[in-house]
Design a protein around this nucleic acid. Sequence first.
DNA 1: GCATGATGCCTCGACGGTCTACCTATACAG
DNA 2: CTGTATAGGTAGACCGTCGAGGCATCATGC
Lengths: 112, 112
Amino acid sequence: MQEPRKSDLLQGTLDMLILKIVQFGPIHGYGIAQRIQQISKEALQVQQGSLYPALHRLENKGLLASDWRASDSGREAKFYTLTPQGRHQLEAETAHWERMSEAVGLILRTVE
Amino acid sequence: MQEPRKSDLLQGTLDMLILKIVQFGPIHGYGIAQRIQQISKEALQVQQGSLYPALHRLENKGLLASDWRASDSGREAKFYTLTPQGRHQLEAETAHWERMSEAVGLILRTVE
DNA sequence: GCATGATGCCTCGACGGTCTACCTATACAG
DNA sequence: CTGTATAGGTAGACCGTCGAGGCATCATGC
């Protein structure tokens, strides 16, 4: 019996993570995936098939704004920035995450 | 603007939480939902439509075993217990959760 | 000149977990 | 006899994620 194929991230956290990374400053999609992987010390990694739909989702909701600029490598890339709603949403999701993950920890640390 | 309809739990944690609660000793489904809610101080709550499919899933995978007994209220109820594989799985999932949630925390606590 | 890998954007189909909304039945209180 | 808590269950829909692809550009090595 082999690895039950664990997901690369905790379900439902992707949007929050993206918003958080973008908060640091304008960045393109490819860079977001790299940053997440790097900061998490390779523990989390975002598949492109998850990333781009998420970015479009967030942009459609008005949480992110985008414009084309030249990337470090001199190529055109779509840079995302946080909108005011995005910042607000990030705060809300962060608070929600804190509450929830703490609650899970509470259960896990319970010894009968 | 209304509640974005947040989920009642963090996606992907239900199986782990169930296994953890069952670890405390034989308990029936209804009781599991109550315990989770109670220990988490109402932060987490499990819908029955999520709970029972999850229990059947876990039993089919051989992580839980069940038998009918009389509950506290004198009614018949299906009591679940952890199998050895279930215990093993719980440890694996707990470790995975720790790694993942810590990684998420790492990102959230990063200040540029 | 050509292949390869890294960068960068994207789409599609499938899967699986969760939620909402139901159904059933029993015990007990009023 | 009606309502509520307890207890088990199913069906359908939704939606996020993943796997697997596609496309283009640029730098490097051969």
